[in-house]
Design a protein around this nucleic acid. Sequence first.
RNA 1: GCCGAAGUGGCGAAAUGGUAGACGCGCCGGUCUCAAAAACCGGUGGGGGCAGCCCCGUGUCAGUUCGAAUCUGACCUUCGGCACCA
Length: 823
Amino acid sequence: MTSGSRQVELGFDPVSIDRKWQERWERDGLNSVPDNDERPKWFEMTMYPYPSGDLHIGHWYAMAPSDAHARFRRMQGYNVLHPIGFDAFGLPAENAAISRGIHPYEWTMDNVENMRRQLRSIGAIYDWDREVVCCLPDYYKWNQWFFIKLYEQGLAYRANAPVVWCPSCITVLANEQVLNGACERCGAMVTRRDLEQWFFRITDYADRLLDFSGLIEWPDKILTMQNNWIGKSTGVEISFDIGSLGIEEREIRTFTTRIDTIFGVTFIVLAPEHPLVEQITTPQHKAEVEEYVAQARRTSEIDRLSADKEKTGVFTGAYAFNRLNWERVPIFISDYVLMTYGTGAVMGVPAHDARDFEFARKYRLPIRQVIAPISWDGSELREAYLGDGFMTNSGAYDGMTNDEGVEAISDDVEKQGWGKRAVSYRIRDWLISRQRYWGTPIPMIYCESCGVLPVREEDLPVLLPSNAEFKPTGESPLAASAEFVNTTCHACGGPARRETDTMDTFMDSSWYMMRYVSPHFQDGPVDPELAKSWLPVNQYTGGAEHAVMHLLYSRFFIKALYDMGMVDFEEPFLRLYNQGVILGQDHEKMSKSRGNVVAPDDVVSVMGADAVRCYLMFIGPWDQGGPWSGEGTNGIARWLNRVWDIAIRDAAALDGSSGSASRDTRRLLHQTVRKCYNDLDRFKFNTAIASMMELTNHLNRVWAEGSVEPELWDECVEKLLLMLAPMAPHVTEELWERTGHEYSIHRREFPVWDEELAADEVFTLVVQVNGKVRDKLEVPVGIPEAEAQQLALSSPRVQSFLDGKAVNKTVYVPGRLVNVVVQ
RNA sequence: GCCGAAGUGGCGAAAUGGUAGACGCGCCGGUCUCAAAAACCGGUGGGGGCAGCCCCGUGUCAGUUCGAAUCUGACCUUCGGCACCA
């Protein structure tokens, strides 16, 4: 039952109608997608769900509107591929194995089976023959194949790097998977740890990933987020002299975007993890530095980066020389400097950087202003000055603008060999290794004599062993399976060990759209001929939370394939639309702990799939999300009931006596078709439904008057059903049959409108005096300006507001209003 | 803290420079009923007036404009995202 206190009583049984047509469509293969077809193709994809066990209303909110849009495209005459699959690898399956003793495969495939049933209840046009389940060897074999291709291109490499470590999941997390210092999956606070890992060189593609070059139509919001995530900044890498310290390294390299402020350097700060820290620290500072380093490694990166956190740091006892003025500056370490960005070392310019300013204040370091705003009177700074100005206290560069200073100093630095212009990115390489069982085994072997080798293509897939140790040991569960680990080197025949890590599941989702095209193809990840005709994806829909992970990885992946000549397109998803989040009744997030999760099965079994579909599309703009309301669904149920009632009436009862009623009805019909067509095209489902409601309200009115022509009535019913078909596929199919039409409504084209028939004959001319509405006049469309003004001015109501005052001017907006301006 | 989006009836919303509140929920009144539910019909931003009508009203304050929910600036609030990026 819905949460509403009253239940709308329907004049038909939606549940049996759902069942009847879902079975019929399946039997007839109505939704099977042909590969070779006259029609233009349209590949519309919704982000595939993780098989967590049960479909919740959020899944419906993602899938029902996207299905309606795909159906609309099909009715526009496209051959539409709107597939579904399961993002079936991942940690929850492993957690279930650990906590409940169920094998991840069993847990996952049980859930998949259940969710298949629930997904069918939506009544979407999924072609189940094209389903992709990426935990099956048929799929993950190609993950391995792609991995090897990337490896051969030099895009996959191993590195020992500090990684984010979740002590609860006992696994490495991508930087992008950490939320507020906590593990995205389990919520535990993360720490850091060094491990030998596989990476993909996404940083090689940073510039190309920044180039959206009109190829793709994505929301600006997502583009901005990707832009910020990649975080390109141009500057100068400048080294400071530490030759006097007597260690092997003669300089410290820093990166700055403000080389113009180099004369304002009063200290250097290294990241605590910087390799030079140990060597340069003097004996009397050793204990303090070591303690600080240890603490920094314990602190999660997110905490270190917290803006509210007070700056901390310690002096190493060492000094470096600024080569531009040979000043001696102290070297500190502080956790506000990150080893993973730039060179892991920063030149401290407190006068012109807010963080350096704060640091200098705290440790009483000198603050020297070297950029002077025009109005500067020489007084001391109260905060860092970040703006433009003239170079001062900067030797030969004094008097230049700071922009000129950047160029002049960069030139000189390069000439002297102290550094070079450089670009720095925030984005880091994609860490692909996971110390988990339920993922794609990384297809590499380690041979004592031949070193690191990829598995031969003919030996793929490297199958996941079924007998793994799931209890977390800190190692990959695969390491516990001797028969998996121990293998033979195909190069020398000697003993070798397999890589025991598995792949990040973002690997699966980076290319799954390709697999939908030819899911059963055996000779490659995708049939090249079909790839040519289907790819890339025309329309992708899904949550905005994937803005910087999945969507960026996939773009990188496809660009890498493009470079290898494997695909002929550079962007996987041409158009993107992000739906909002469905909330609970009181605008709160839905969660199991709150107990406010709406189970679609419960609602659908009472009011049918169509009412749920339509309600979700009616609550508001799709991209804004909104609250689920049990009572709100009553409105849609009532409306579908009215549609039913209208459709099954016998139009012979009408006498069509009023020509004007027929004219009005025909006009409204064509206006409604125009409105629905344009709204559905742009995912504006809510206003499309509202306009259909207006049409049904009108039809009820004219029926009561009996004044409309029977043929026109039938035409209205037919077109209303066609317009509603993408949103309410079951009821419309049933009514299509009951009104004597040929099966199936879903093979018909969307109605078209006639601009002439949609055109209004009269409109309401608004008459304003000084911008305030004072009268409304019904006038014919195309009324001449002079006549409209005449009518407006002679309106008695307008006259009473003019009160004899002189008219300064009148503003005329054709088809809308006359504004009379007085005094 | 920074970035982005958004603030409109009791509620979900519509209108993106020109009639504010379409459409729907809820509520109120009516029809039907012994009664209720359902269904159907009518009403429903606030204030004033017997009424014709009038005034006010789209987070706040300014501004631009003949005219602003819509554009600009500042502020407040909420929601998303996040990077102390040197």
